[in-house]
Design a protein around this nucleic acid. Structure first.
Lengths: 75, 75
DNA sequence: ACTTGATGTATAGTTTACTTTACATTATGT
DNA sequence: ACATAATGTAAAGTAAACTATACATCAAGT
């Protein structure tokens, strides 16, 4: 299984920014909705490239969207 | 081929920090030397998880080690 | 009651990150 | 001259990220 060590605030941010839907975010960053679902569930961490694109959509630095350390940690 | 859009300063940082070798960096972040080689050459971008670990070794925020945009861009 | 959009979940398949092995080159030291 | 460490390159294999498809549930609107 390999344990995912990177957490994120995607879901929260989607709601704060325009109530954006999973599909809309997926379209904006060029992936499928399934990928967004997987990320929100913490199934795996995105590629660095995708992480940059997601952060850009929310107008935030990458490290305010994604954080390293236990998935249960928050900032 | 799919073009890698993420660049990095790994090589430069290795020399600035302790003249660290590829193997030493690889060991510190838990990958093989081949992975470091590939990253320095820009063959592909690392996983977000690996990106975090590398930045941590250099005591830098992730975005000072990796940057989004054309590989030819610098900060 | 029906449709429509948003989300949840699952699974097989493709692509890309990463490993493993291997060998060649160059520089440094003895 | 020989050994050793660091780097370059290459290629086949594994693992993880991401796609595609499909179907089910729930809420909101008409």
């Amino acid at each position: 299984m390999g344990k995912n060590l990177v957490g994120n605030h995607i879901r929260k941010l989607r709601f704060n920014h325009d109530e954006m839907t999973q599909q809309q975010l997926a379209d904006k960053v060029g992936v499928t909705r399934q990928t967004i679902v997987a990320l929100e569930k913490g199934n795996y961490s995105p590629s660095l490239e995708l992480a940059f694109r997601i952060a850009h959509v929310f107008n935030l630095p990458l490290e305010e969207v994604f954080f390293y350390g236990d998935s249960t940690r928050e900032k």
